[in-house]
Design a protein around this nucleic acid. Structure first.
Length: 178
DNA sequence: GCCAACGTTGGC
DNA sequence: GCCAACGTTGGC
């Protein structure tokens, strides 16, 4: 079970927007490292901190959840889109994404300044200077601490080994051996 | 394959 | 608006 942080500029798409639409395909990521996290590493049910970037102030506004398996970002095929990629085709997509669904909005946003002032969060990637990666893995301890600071706890933890998923019934989109 | 130039991100 | 950090591009 991995944890994540996803950045969005609230003037473009905020956590309030996610709360309204409930589920959103995370289009427009054009960084290979960020894409690979969505393509290969995220699993449905995993939780992500929703970070407002380019905001005054920037910070973590709430929590979202990976809502499904990866699929091609449709905007790469749309010539009118600012995310159009002429090197991509439906037969050979270059950009993959997952959908995120709304989980919660923190009662008050945890600002970046607050995160940086907490010694237990000093190692977080988002606290590092020059960290631009728009999708980042988050250590479980950091995730737990932030949810504690945000006044939220997960009351719907994912199913455990008591009800194993019949993974052999459906083909996995994740590949497996490289 | 190096690396300078350029573009973007995003805090401040 | 500034600019540091980082990623990508393209000449060679």
């Amino acid at each position: 079970m991995s944890h994540w942080l996803i950045k969005s500029e609230p003037e473009v798409f905020s956590i309030a927007d996610l709360a309204r639409v409930r589920r959103e395909p995370w289009t427009g990521v054009r960084n290979y490292q960020a894409r690979n996290f969505m393509w290969k590493d995220m699993r449905p049910g995993e939780l992500a901190l929703f970070y407002h970037s380019n905001a005054k102030p920037p910070g973590i506004a709430g929590v979202a959840r990976v809502a499904g398996p990866p699929h091609p970002d449709p905007t790469q095929f749309e010539p009118a889109s600012e995310y159009f990629d002429p090197k991509a085709s439906p037969a050979a997509p270059r950009w993959w994404l997952v959908d995120f669904e709304y989980v919660t909005t923190f009662e008050s946003m945890l600002t970046l300044a607050e995160l940086k002032s907490d010694p237990s969060l000093a190692a977080m990637l988002v606290c590092q200077r020059g960290s631009r990666l728009s999708i980042q893995p988050v250590a479980a301890s950091h995730f737990t601490r932030i949810c504690q600071l945000g006044g939220w706890q997960d009351n719907n933890p994912p199913a455990t080994a008591a009800s194993p998923a019949p993974s052999h019934f459906t083909p996995s989109p994740y590949g497996g051996s490289h």
